[in-house]
Design a protein around this nucleic acid. Structure first.
Length: 504
RNA sequence: GCCUCAUUAGCUCAGUUGGUUAGAGCGACGGACUGUUAAUCCGCAGGUCCCUGGUUCGAGUCCAGGAUGGGGCGCCA
Protein backbone atom coordinates (compact mmCIF):
# COMPACT_ATOMS: atom_id res chain seq x y z
CA UNK A 1 0.00 0.00 0.00
CA UNK A 2 0.97 3.64 -0.28
CA UNK A 3 2.52 5.50 2.62
CA UNK A 4 -0.03 8.33 2.39
CA UNK A 5 -2.80 5.80 3.17
CA UNK A 6 -1.16 4.31 6.29
CA UNK A 7 -3.65 5.99 8.64
CA UNK A 8 -6.32 3.60 7.36
CA UNK A 9 -4.29 0.65 8.67
CA UNK A 10 -3.56 1.97 12.16
CA UNK A 11 -2.86 -0.97 14.47
CA UNK A 12 -2.88 -3.48 11.62
CA UNK A 13 -0.23 -5.00 9.39
CA UNK A 14 0.74 -3.14 6.23
CA UNK A 15 3.14 -3.80 3.40
CA UNK A 16 5.21 -0.96 1.92
CA UNK A 17 7.48 -0.87 -1.13
CA UNK A 18 9.98 1.92 -1.36
CA UNK A 19 13.44 3.40 -1.07
CA UNK A 20 15.66 4.24 1.88
CA UNK A 21 15.52 8.03 2.25
CA UNK A 22 17.58 8.00 5.44
CA UNK A 23 18.89 5.48 7.97
CA UNK A 24 20.02 5.50 11.60
CA UNK A 25 21.42 2.57 13.50
CA UNK A 26 21.81 1.50 17.02
CA UNK A 27 22.78 -1.86 18.44
CA UNK A 28 19.98 -4.28 17.58
CA UNK A 29 17.86 -1.54 15.96
CA UNK A 30 17.74 0.05 12.54
CA UNK A 31 15.60 3.09 11.77
CA UNK A 32 14.75 3.35 8.09
CA UNK A 33 13.04 6.42 6.63
CA UNK A 34 11.24 4.80 3.74
CA UNK A 35 9.80 6.83 0.87
CA UNK A 36 7.53 5.52 -1.88
CA UNK A 37 6.68 8.70 -3.80
CA UNK A 38 3.51 9.30 -1.80
CA UNK A 39 5.18 10.09 1.50
CA UNK A 40 7.83 9.12 4.03
CA UNK A 41 7.49 6.79 6.99
CA UNK A 42 9.94 5.65 9.65
CA UNK A 43 10.29 1.87 9.83
CA UNK A 44 11.90 0.23 12.86
CA UNK A 45 13.69 -3.04 12.34
CA UNK A 46 14.55 -4.81 15.58
CA UNK A 47 17.03 -7.71 15.79
CA UNK A 48 14.50 -9.50 18.03
CA UNK A 49 11.89 -9.63 15.24
CA UNK A 50 13.93 -10.74 12.28
CA UNK A 51 16.51 -13.36 11.53
CA UNK A 52 20.12 -12.49 12.16
CA UNK A 53 21.36 -12.55 8.56
CA UNK A 54 18.54 -10.38 7.20
CA UNK A 55 19.01 -7.93 10.06
CA UNK A 56 22.69 -7.53 9.21
CA UNK A 57 21.78 -6.95 5.59
CA UNK A 58 19.22 -4.29 6.49
CA UNK A 59 21.77 -2.64 8.75
CA UNK A 60 24.12 -2.37 5.78
CA UNK A 61 21.61 -0.72 3.38
CA UNK A 62 22.79 2.49 1.74
CA UNK A 63 20.66 5.51 0.83
CA UNK A 64 18.14 4.82 -1.97
CA UNK A 65 18.30 1.04 -1.55
CA UNK A 66 15.00 -0.47 -2.68
CA UNK A 67 13.03 -2.94 -0.58
CA UNK A 68 9.67 -4.27 0.52
CA UNK A 69 8.72 -4.42 4.16
CA UNK A 70 5.71 -5.55 6.15
CA UNK A 71 4.88 -4.72 9.73
CA UNK A 72 2.51 -3.21 12.23
CA UNK A 73 1.37 0.39 11.74
CA UNK A 74 1.74 2.31 15.01
CA UNK A 75 0.59 5.85 15.68
CA UNK A 76 3.42 8.09 16.91
CA UNK A 77 3.09 11.86 17.20
CA UNK A 78 6.79 12.45 16.70
CA UNK A 79 6.83 11.02 13.18
CA UNK A 80 6.50 13.03 9.94
CA UNK A 81 3.28 11.38 8.79
CA UNK A 82 2.12 10.63 12.33
CA UNK A 83 2.78 6.87 11.99
CA UNK A 84 5.67 4.42 12.07
CA UNK A 85 5.98 0.75 11.14
CA UNK A 86 7.38 -2.00 13.33
CA UNK A 87 8.86 -4.31 10.73
CA UNK A 88 8.25 -8.09 10.83
CA UNK A 89 9.24 -9.03 7.30
CA UNK A 90 11.58 -7.50 4.74
CA UNK A 91 12.72 -8.29 1.25
CA UNK A 92 15.67 -6.37 -0.13
CA UNK A 93 15.45 -5.67 -3.85
CA UNK A 94 18.75 -3.83 -4.17
CA UNK A 95 21.35 -2.77 -1.65
CA UNK A 96 22.81 0.52 -2.92
CA UNK A 97 26.15 1.94 -1.94
CA UNK A 98 27.50 5.43 -2.53
CA UNK A 99 24.34 7.29 -3.56
CA UNK A 100 25.72 10.57 -4.94
CA UNK A 101 23.35 13.03 -3.24
CA UNK A 102 24.14 13.32 0.45
CA UNK A 103 21.86 14.54 3.19
CA UNK A 104 23.38 18.02 3.21
CA UNK A 105 23.66 21.31 1.28
CA UNK A 106 24.71 21.00 -2.36
CA UNK A 107 25.43 23.56 -5.08
CA UNK A 108 23.12 24.23 -8.03
CA UNK A 109 25.44 22.85 -10.69
CA UNK A 110 26.00 19.56 -8.93
CA UNK A 111 22.30 19.07 -8.34
CA UNK A 112 21.43 19.96 -11.94
CA UNK A 113 23.89 17.33 -13.19
CA UNK A 114 22.09 14.87 -10.91
CA UNK A 115 18.60 16.10 -11.76
CA UNK A 116 17.37 12.54 -12.45
CA UNK A 117 18.20 11.68 -8.83
CA UNK A 118 17.58 15.09 -7.31
CA UNK A 119 13.87 14.69 -8.15
CA UNK A 120 13.71 12.06 -5.38
CA UNK A 121 14.52 14.59 -2.67
CA UNK A 122 11.80 15.93 -0.43
CA UNK A 123 11.87 19.50 -1.66
CA UNK A 124 11.64 18.48 -5.33
CA UNK A 125 8.88 16.05 -4.42
CA UNK A 126 6.90 18.93 -2.92
CA UNK A 127 7.45 21.20 -5.94
CA UNK A 128 6.32 18.54 -8.40
CA UNK A 129 3.18 17.88 -6.37
CA UNK A 130 2.33 21.60 -6.35
CA UNK A 131 3.04 21.72 -10.10
CA UNK A 132 0.59 18.87 -10.53
CA UNK A 133 -2.10 20.71 -8.57
CA UNK A 134 -1.52 23.84 -10.63
CA UNK A 135 -1.81 21.96 -13.95
CA UNK A 136 -4.95 20.22 -12.80
CA UNK A 137 -6.58 23.39 -11.49
CA UNK A 138 -5.80 25.23 -14.73
CA UNK A 139 -7.78 22.59 -16.62
CA UNK A 140 -10.49 22.69 -13.96
CA UNK A 141 -10.89 26.42 -14.22
CA UNK A 142 -11.17 26.60 -18.00
CA UNK A 143 -13.36 23.51 -18.28
CA UNK A 144 -15.70 24.92 -15.65
CA UNK A 145 -15.87 28.21 -17.58
CA UNK A 146 -16.81 26.49 -20.81
CA UNK A 147 -13.47 26.62 -22.61
CA UNK A 148 -12.42 23.86 -25.03
CA UNK A 149 -8.84 22.64 -24.84
CA UNK A 150 -7.24 22.65 -28.29
CA UNK A 151 -3.62 22.36 -29.33
CA UNK A 152 -1.63 24.64 -31.58
CA UNK A 153 1.07 23.12 -33.80
CA UNK A 154 4.59 22.86 -32.43
CA UNK A 155 6.28 22.96 -35.84
CA UNK A 156 5.67 26.25 -37.63
CA UNK A 157 6.82 27.84 -40.87
CA UNK A 158 7.20 31.41 -39.75
CA UNK A 159 8.74 33.31 -36.91
CA UNK A 160 5.33 34.58 -35.78
CA UNK A 161 6.08 37.87 -34.06
CA UNK A 162 9.44 38.01 -35.72
CA UNK A 163 11.41 39.18 -32.72
CA UNK A 164 12.61 36.25 -30.69
CA UNK A 165 15.24 33.66 -31.58
CA UNK A 166 13.73 30.32 -32.54
CA UNK A 167 15.07 26.80 -32.77
CA UNK A 168 15.26 25.60 -36.34
CA UNK A 169 14.54 22.04 -37.42
CA UNK A 170 14.75 20.22 -40.70
CA UNK A 171 11.25 19.76 -42.08
CA UNK A 172 11.45 17.52 -45.17
CA UNK A 173 14.54 19.37 -46.36
CA UNK A 174 13.01 22.76 -45.59
CA UNK A 175 13.64 24.93 -42.58
CA UNK A 176 10.93 25.04 -39.94
CA UNK A 177 10.80 26.37 -36.40
CA UNK A 178 9.74 25.13 -33.00
CA UNK A 179 6.78 27.19 -31.89
CA UNK A 180 7.40 30.16 -29.60
CA UNK A 181 3.65 30.78 -29.16
CA UNK A 182 0.41 29.15 -30.22
CA UNK A 183 -1.52 32.38 -30.06
CA UNK A 184 -2.23 33.06 -33.72
CA UNK A 185 -3.58 29.52 -34.04
CA UNK A 186 -5.46 30.04 -30.80
CA UNK A 187 -7.31 32.94 -32.42
CA UNK A 188 -8.32 30.75 -35.36
CA UNK A 189 -9.55 28.03 -32.98
CA UNK A 190 -11.52 30.57 -30.89
CA UNK A 191 -13.32 31.72 -34.05
CA UNK A 192 -14.46 28.12 -34.43
CA UNK A 193 -15.18 27.07 -30.83
CA UNK A 194 -15.74 30.40 -29.04
CA UNK A 195 -13.57 29.96 -25.95
CA UNK A 196 -10.47 27.79 -26.18
CA UNK A 197 -7.17 27.28 -24.40
CA UNK A 198 -3.95 25.65 -25.48
CA UNK A 199 -1.61 23.88 -23.08
CA UNK A 200 1.69 22.85 -24.50
CA UNK A 201 5.44 23.25 -24.75
CA UNK A 202 7.00 26.42 -26.09
CA UNK A 203 10.56 26.98 -27.31
CA UNK A 204 12.79 30.03 -27.26
CA UNK A 205 16.44 29.89 -28.20
CA UNK A 206 17.40 33.12 -26.45
CA UNK A 207 20.72 32.93 -24.67
CA UNK A 208 19.23 34.09 -21.40
CA UNK A 209 21.01 33.36 -18.16
CA UNK A 210 18.56 34.49 -15.57
CA UNK A 211 16.49 32.81 -12.90
CA UNK A 212 13.29 33.21 -14.88
CA UNK A 213 14.19 31.88 -18.34
CA UNK A 214 14.02 28.44 -19.88
CA UNK A 215 14.59 27.37 -23.49
CA UNK A 216 11.67 24.95 -23.25
CA UNK A 217 8.69 25.73 -21.06
CA UNK A 218 4.96 25.06 -20.83
CA UNK A 219 2.49 27.74 -21.73
CA UNK A 220 -1.27 28.05 -21.34
CA UNK A 221 -2.93 30.34 -23.87
CA UNK A 222 -6.67 31.02 -23.61
CA UNK A 223 -8.45 32.94 -26.36
CA UNK A 224 -11.99 34.34 -25.99
CA UNK A 225 -14.40 35.85 -28.52
CA UNK A 226 -16.45 38.95 -27.65
CA UNK A 227 -14.02 39.83 -24.92
CA UNK A 228 -12.30 43.20 -24.49
CA UNK A 229 -9.19 44.08 -22.52
CA UNK A 230 -11.10 44.71 -19.30
CA UNK A 231 -13.05 41.46 -19.46
CA UNK A 232 -9.72 39.81 -20.25
CA UNK A 233 -8.24 41.24 -17.06
CA UNK A 234 -11.27 39.97 -15.11
CA UNK A 235 -10.57 36.45 -16.41
CA UNK A 236 -6.86 36.66 -15.62
CA UNK A 237 -7.62 37.74 -12.06
CA UNK A 238 -10.27 35.09 -11.47
CA UNK A 239 -8.06 32.44 -13.02
CA UNK A 240 -4.99 33.17 -10.89
CA UNK A 241 -7.15 33.38 -7.76
CA UNK A 242 -8.65 29.98 -8.56
CA UNK A 243 -5.27 28.30 -9.03
CA UNK A 244 -3.77 29.78 -5.87
CA UNK A 245 -6.85 28.83 -3.83
CA UNK A 246 -6.62 25.24 -5.09
CA UNK A 247 -2.95 25.00 -4.11
CA UNK A 248 -3.69 26.43 -0.66
CA UNK A 249 -6.49 23.90 -0.22
CA UNK A 250 -4.64 20.82 -1.48
CA UNK A 251 -0.94 21.34 -0.80
CA UNK A 252 -0.56 22.56 2.75
CA UNK A 253 1.91 19.76 3.47
CA UNK A 254 3.98 20.51 0.38
CA UNK A 255 4.07 24.27 1.00
CA UNK A 256 5.19 23.46 4.50
CA UNK A 257 8.08 21.32 3.19
CA UNK A 258 9.02 24.29 0.98
CA UNK A 259 8.84 26.59 4.00
CA UNK A 260 6.55 28.87 1.98
CA UNK A 261 5.11 31.90 3.75
CA UNK A 262 1.36 31.57 3.07
CA UNK A 263 0.40 35.20 3.69
CA UNK A 264 1.38 36.52 0.23
CA UNK A 265 -0.60 33.65 -1.34
CA UNK A 266 -3.67 34.32 0.78
CA UNK A 267 -3.65 38.01 -0.16
CA UNK A 268 -4.22 37.00 -3.80
CA UNK A 269 -7.92 36.70 -3.00
CA UNK A 270 -8.00 40.51 -2.76
CA UNK A 271 -8.53 42.25 -6.10
CA UNK A 272 -5.41 42.89 -8.16
CA UNK A 273 -3.92 46.32 -8.73
CA UNK A 274 -4.62 47.61 -12.25
CA UNK A 275 -2.36 50.33 -13.63
CA UNK A 276 -2.21 51.93 -17.03
CA UNK A 277 1.26 52.16 -18.52
CA UNK A 278 1.25 55.89 -17.76
CA UNK A 279 0.48 55.34 -14.07
CA UNK A 280 3.04 52.55 -13.82
CA UNK A 281 5.77 54.76 -15.31
CA UNK A 282 4.96 57.53 -12.81
CA UNK A 283 5.33 55.11 -9.93
CA UNK A 284 8.44 53.53 -11.36
CA UNK A 285 10.18 56.88 -11.82
CA UNK A 286 9.35 57.81 -8.24
CA UNK A 287 6.98 60.62 -9.28
CA UNK A 288 4.05 58.97 -7.58
CA UNK A 289 4.07 57.32 -4.17
CA UNK A 290 2.28 54.13 -3.16
CA UNK A 291 1.23 54.00 0.48
CA UNK A 292 3.47 56.98 1.16
CA UNK A 293 6.51 55.29 -0.31
CA UNK A 294 8.40 55.96 -3.55
CA UNK A 295 10.54 53.47 -5.47
CA UNK A 296 13.58 55.38 -4.24
CA UNK A 297 12.48 54.98 -0.60
CA UNK A 298 11.81 51.31 -1.20
CA UNK A 299 15.18 50.47 -2.74
CA UNK A 300 17.09 52.51 -0.18
CA UNK A 301 15.25 50.80 2.63
CA UNK A 302 16.01 47.43 1.11
CA UNK A 303 19.70 48.24 0.63
CA UNK A 304 19.89 49.40 4.25
CA UNK A 305 18.26 46.16 5.41
CA UNK A 306 20.66 44.09 3.30
CA UNK A 307 23.62 45.99 4.72
CA UNK A 308 22.45 45.39 8.28
CA UNK A 309 21.73 41.73 7.61
CA UNK A 310 25.17 41.22 6.06
CA UNK A 311 26.93 42.91 8.97
CA UNK A 312 25.03 40.80 11.43
CA UNK A 313 25.78 37.57 9.55
CA UNK A 314 29.46 38.43 9.34
CA UNK A 315 29.64 39.17 13.06
CA UNK A 316 27.80 35.95 13.91
CA UNK A 317 30.12 33.94 11.69
CA UNK A 318 33.21 35.51 13.24
CA UNK A 319 31.89 34.53 16.64
CA UNK A 320 31.20 30.97 15.47
CA UNK A 321 34.65 30.75 13.89
CA UNK A 322 36.15 31.94 17.15
CA UNK A 323 34.35 29.21 19.11
CA UNK A 324 35.57 26.60 16.62
CA UNK A 325 39.18 27.78 16.72
CA UNK A 326 39.16 27.89 20.51
CA UNK A 327 38.32 24.17 20.43
CA UNK A 328 37.13 21.91 23.18
CA UNK A 329 33.58 21.51 21.84
CA UNK A 330 31.70 18.38 20.95
CA UNK A 331 31.82 17.05 17.43
CA UNK A 332 28.11 17.42 16.82
CA UNK A 333 28.10 21.04 17.95
CA UNK A 334 31.14 21.68 15.79
CA UNK A 335 29.48 20.21 12.70
CA UNK A 336 26.43 22.32 13.36
CA UNK A 337 28.49 25.50 13.68
CA UNK A 338 30.42 24.68 10.52
CA UNK A 339 27.33 24.02 8.47
CA UNK A 340 25.69 27.19 9.79
CA UNK A 341 28.72 29.17 8.69
CA UNK A 342 28.55 27.58 5.22
CA UNK A 343 24.87 28.40 4.93
CA UNK A 344 25.33 32.00 6.09
CA UNK A 345 28.15 32.47 3.60
CA UNK A 346 25.87 31.49 0.77
CA UNK A 347 23.35 34.03 1.99
CA UNK A 348 26.09 36.67 2.18
CA UNK A 349 27.01 35.93 -1.43
CA UNK A 350 23.38 36.43 -2.40
CA UNK A 351 23.26 39.71 -0.49
CA UNK A 352 26.42 40.89 -2.22
CA UNK A 353 24.84 40.11 -5.58
CA UNK A 354 21.72 42.04 -4.61
CA UNK A 355 23.87 44.91 -3.42
CA UNK A 356 25.49 45.04 -6.84
CA UNK A 357 22.15 44.81 -8.67
CA UNK A 358 19.80 47.03 -6.68
CA UNK A 359 21.51 50.38 -7.34
CA UNK A 360 21.55 49.56 -11.06
CA UNK A 361 17.86 48.74 -10.91
CA UNK A 362 17.08 52.00 -9.15
CA UNK A 363 19.14 53.92 -11.68
CA UNK A 364 17.32 52.19 -14.51
CA UNK A 365 13.92 52.91 -12.91
CA UNK A 366 14.73 56.59 -12.27
CA UNK A 367 15.99 57.14 -15.80
CA UNK A 368 13.21 55.14 -17.40
CA UNK A 369 12.40 56.74 -20.76
CA UNK A 370 8.68 57.08 -21.34
CA UNK A 371 7.67 54.97 -24.32
CA UNK A 372 10.03 52.09 -23.64
CA UNK A 373 9.09 48.60 -22.57
CA UNK A 374 9.69 47.67 -18.94
CA UNK A 375 12.84 45.71 -18.28
CA UNK A 376 12.99 42.76 -15.91
CA UNK A 377 14.37 44.96 -13.16
CA UNK A 378 11.64 47.58 -13.70
CA UNK A 379 8.99 44.90 -13.22
CA UNK A 380 10.68 43.72 -10.06
CA UNK A 381 10.87 47.22 -8.63
CA UNK A 382 7.24 47.91 -9.51
CA UNK A 383 5.87 44.72 -7.97
CA UNK A 384 7.79 45.28 -4.76
CA UNK A 385 5.54 48.31 -4.26
CA UNK A 386 2.40 46.17 -3.94
CA UNK A 387 1.42 43.04 -1.99
CA UNK A 388 -1.00 41.79 -4.67
CA UNK A 389 -0.37 40.95 -8.34
CA UNK A 390 -0.24 44.00 -10.59
CA UNK A 391 -1.75 44.28 -14.08
CA UNK A 392 -0.30 46.91 -16.39
CA UNK A 393 -2.34 47.73 -19.49
CA UNK A 394 -2.46 50.21 -22.40
CA UNK A 395 1.12 50.19 -23.63
CA UNK A 396 2.66 52.43 -26.30
CA UNK A 397 1.72 50.57 -29.47
CA UNK A 398 5.23 50.72 -30.95
CA UNK A 399 6.65 48.33 -28.37
CA UNK A 400 3.89 45.74 -28.56
CA UNK A 401 3.26 42.93 -31.03
CA UNK A 402 1.68 43.71 -34.38
CA UNK A 403 -1.66 42.04 -33.56
CA UNK A 404 -2.50 44.19 -30.52
CA UNK A 405 -5.66 46.29 -30.74
CA UNK A 406 -5.32 50.07 -30.40
CA UNK A 407 -7.21 51.91 -27.72
CA UNK A 408 -10.05 53.50 -29.74
CA UNK A 409 -10.05 56.61 -27.50
CA UNK A 410 -6.28 57.06 -27.77
CA UNK A 411 -4.60 55.15 -30.61
CA UNK A 412 -1.19 55.93 -29.10
CA UNK A 413 -1.82 52.91 -26.90
CA UNK A 414 -2.20 49.23 -27.65
CA UNK A 415 -4.49 47.14 -25.47
CA UNK A 416 -1.92 44.75 -24.10
CA UNK A 417 -1.81 43.62 -20.48
CA UNK A 418 0.98 42.11 -18.40
CA UNK A 419 0.41 40.45 -15.06
CA UNK A 420 3.30 40.94 -12.68
CA UNK A 421 3.52 38.52 -9.77
CA UNK A 422 4.34 39.84 -6.29
CA UNK A 423 7.57 39.23 -4.35
CA UNK A 424 9.71 40.20 -7.33
CA UNK A 425 8.71 37.36 -9.64
CA UNK A 426 7.93 39.61 -12.60
CA UNK A 427 5.82 38.85 -15.62
CA UNK A 428 3.88 35.60 -15.45
CA UNK A 429 1.10 36.52 -17.89
CA UNK A 430 1.23 38.54 -21.10
CA UNK A 431 -1.83 39.14 -23.27
CA UNK A 432 -4.31 41.62 -24.60
CA UNK A 433 -7.13 42.44 -26.95
CA UNK A 434 -6.44 41.60 -30.61
CA UNK A 435 -6.76 43.92 -33.59
CA UNK A 436 -9.93 43.19 -35.58
CA UNK A 437 -9.46 45.44 -38.61
CA UNK A 438 -7.74 43.82 -41.56
CA UNK A 439 -6.27 47.09 -42.90
CA UNK A 440 -4.76 48.11 -39.57
CA UNK A 441 -3.23 44.67 -39.28
CA UNK A 442 -1.69 44.82 -42.76
CA UNK A 443 -0.13 48.17 -41.90
CA UNK A 444 1.36 46.69 -38.75
CA UNK A 445 2.73 43.66 -40.57
CA UNK A 446 4.50 45.98 -43.03
CA UNK A 447 5.73 48.19 -40.17
CA UNK A 448 7.22 45.13 -38.43
CA UNK A 449 8.77 43.97 -41.74
CA UNK A 450 7.03 40.60 -41.56
CA UNK A 451 6.39 38.43 -44.65
CA UNK A 452 2.79 39.27 -45.59
CA UNK A 453 2.17 36.02 -47.50
CA UNK A 454 2.80 33.97 -44.37
CA UNK A 455 0.01 35.83 -42.55
CA UNK A 456 -2.66 35.51 -45.21
CA UNK A 457 -4.43 32.78 -43.28
CA UNK A 458 -4.35 34.95 -40.17
CA UNK A 459 -5.80 37.92 -42.09
CA UNK A 460 -8.61 35.60 -43.26
CA UNK A 461 -9.81 35.56 -39.63
CA UNK A 462 -10.55 39.30 -40.07
CA UNK A 463 -11.90 38.99 -43.60
CA UNK A 464 -14.54 36.43 -42.71
CA UNK A 465 -16.56 37.47 -39.70
CA UNK A 466 -14.14 39.44 -37.58
CA UNK A 467 -15.19 39.88 -33.92
CA UNK A 468 -13.63 41.50 -30.86
CA UNK A 469 -11.49 38.96 -29.00
CA UNK A 470 -8.80 38.74 -26.36
CA UNK A 471 -6.48 36.25 -24.80
CA UNK A 472 -3.31 35.77 -22.83
CA UNK A 473 -0.35 33.48 -22.28
CA UNK A 474 0.66 32.09 -18.90
CA UNK A 475 4.12 30.66 -18.24
CA UNK A 476 3.56 27.54 -16.16
CA UNK A 477 7.04 27.38 -14.67
CA UNK A 478 6.95 31.03 -13.66
CA UNK A 479 3.64 30.47 -11.92
CA UNK A 480 5.02 27.39 -10.14
CA UNK A 481 8.12 29.36 -9.15
CA UNK A 482 6.14 32.16 -7.61
CA UNK A 483 3.62 29.95 -5.80
CA UNK A 484 6.43 27.78 -4.37
CA UNK A 485 8.70 30.83 -3.97
CA UNK A 486 11.53 29.09 -5.81
CA UNK A 487 14.87 30.68 -6.35
CA UNK A 488 14.98 29.61 -10.00
CA UNK A 489 12.49 28.36 -12.65
CA UNK A 490 14.76 25.38 -13.29
CA UNK A 491 13.36 23.77 -10.14
CA UNK A 492 9.79 24.19 -11.46
CA UNK A 493 10.11 21.64 -14.29
CA UNK A 494 11.30 18.03 -14.05
CA UNK A 495 14.07 18.28 -16.65
CA UNK A 496 14.89 21.92 -17.43
CA UNK A 497 16.22 22.92 -20.81
CA UNK A 498 18.13 26.14 -20.57
CA UNK A 499 21.03 27.98 -22.15
CA UNK A 500 24.10 25.75 -21.80
CA UNK A 501 22.26 22.64 -20.65
CA UNK A 502 20.41 19.82 -22.37
CA UNK A 503 21.31 16.95 -20.00
CA UNK A 504 20.16 14.94 -18.16
C1' G B 1 25.91 39.68 -27.61
C1' C B 2 27.40 42.79 -23.10
C1' C B 3 28.53 43.36 -17.65
C1' U B 4 29.78 40.93 -13.07
C1' C B 5 31.22 37.05 -9.58
C1' A B 6 33.28 32.34 -9.07
C1' U B 7 36.22 27.44 -10.01
C1' U B 8 40.86 23.80 -4.10
C1' A B 9 38.94 16.07 -1.67
C1' G B 10 32.65 12.63 -3.67
C1' C B 11 29.88 17.35 -1.49
C1' U B 12 30.10 22.41 1.06
C1' C B 13 34.04 25.44 1.91
C1' A B 14 38.96 27.58 4.59
C1' G B 15 43.85 28.59 2.83
C1' U B 16 47.17 35.28 5.96
C1' U B 17 51.75 40.55 2.41
C1' G B 18 53.76 34.66 -2.72
C1' G B 19 57.40 30.51 1.44
C1' U B 20 58.74 23.65 3.74
C1' U B 21 54.83 17.90 3.38
C1' A B 22 47.49 21.96 0.96
C1' G B 23 43.30 21.87 5.62
C1' A B 24 38.17 21.44 8.06
C1' G B 25 33.19 19.69 8.23
C1' C B 26 29.88 16.51 5.89
C1' G B 27 29.54 12.06 2.96
C1' A B 28 31.74 7.06 1.91
C1' C B 29 34.12 2.91 4.27
C1' G B 30 35.38 -0.10 9.13
C1' G B 31 34.05 -0.47 14.30
C1' A B 32 31.05 0.72 19.16
C1' C B 33 26.16 1.66 21.10
C1' U B 34 18.65 -1.41 22.02
C1' G B 35 14.22 4.66 20.49
C1' U B 36 17.10 7.38 16.73
C1' U B 37 14.94 12.07 13.90
C1' A B 38 20.85 15.70 9.56
C1' A B 39 21.60 10.34 15.96
C1' U B 40 26.20 10.11 18.71
C1' C B 41 31.34 8.28 19.64
C1' C B 42 36.17 6.04 17.76
C1' G B 43 39.08 4.90 13.42
C1' C B 44 40.47 5.01 8.16
C1' A B 45 40.83 6.37 3.08
C1' G B 46 40.35 10.35 -0.15
C1' G B 47 43.94 16.03 -4.18
C1' U B 48 45.58 17.15 -12.26
C1' C B 49 44.38 23.46 -6.32
C1' C B 50 39.67 24.31 -13.98
C1' C B 51 43.29 24.66 -18.46
C1' U B 52 47.46 27.14 -21.09
C1' G B 53 51.21 30.53 -20.83
C1' G B 54 53.91 34.42 -18.07
C1' U B 55 56.39 37.02 -13.67
C1' U B 56 59.55 34.93 -9.59
C1' C B 57 64.86 31.62 -6.26
C1' G B 58 59.80 29.91 -5.20
C1' A B 59 52.68 30.36 -7.49
C1' G B 60 46.64 27.28 -4.81
C1' U B 61 47.90 32.67 -4.01
C1' C B 62 50.20 37.70 -8.72
C1' C B 63 49.45 38.81 -14.39
C1' A B 64 47.36 37.50 -19.45
C1' G B 65 44.34 34.41 -22.41
C1' G B 66 40.81 30.43 -22.55
C1' A B 67 37.01 26.89 -20.65
C1' U B 68 32.97 25.94 -17.42
C1' G B 69 29.37 27.62 -13.97
C1' G B 70 26.34 31.38 -10.85
C1' G B 71 23.85 36.10 -11.33
C1' G B 72 22.36 40.48 -14.02
C1' C B 73 21.18 43.30 -18.75
C1' G B 74 18.87 42.80 -23.54
C1' C B 75 14.49 39.56 -24.97
C1' C B 76 10.44 37.44 -22.98
C1' A B 77 6.18 33.71 -20.21
Amino acid sequence: MRIEDLAKKNGQTAQIQGWVANKRESKGLVFLNLRDGSGIVQCIVSADNIDEKLFQEIASLGLESSLEIAGKVVQDERQIGGYEIHVDEAKIIQNVSEYPIANKEHGAEFLMDKRHLWLRSRRQWAIMRVRNTIIFSIHNFFQKEGFVQMDAPILTANACEGTTDLFTVDYFENEAYLSQSGQLYGEAMAMALGKIYTFGPTFRSEKSKTRRHLAEFWMIEPEMIFCDIFQNMDVIEKFIQHVVAEVLAKNEKELNVLDRDLEPLRSVEKSFTRLSYDQAVQILKGQEKVNGQSTLDLIQKELQELKEEKEKLEMDNEERQHIITKGGIKKGKLAFLQSTIDKQKQRIKQIEEDQRNLPQWLESAKNFAYGNDFGGSDETVLTKMFDVPVMVYDWPHEIKAFYMKRNPDNPKFARGVDLLAPEGYGEIVGGGERETDVEWLKEKIIEHKLPMEEFEWYLDLRRYGTVPHSGFGLGLERLVSWICKLHHVREAIPFPRMYGRIEP
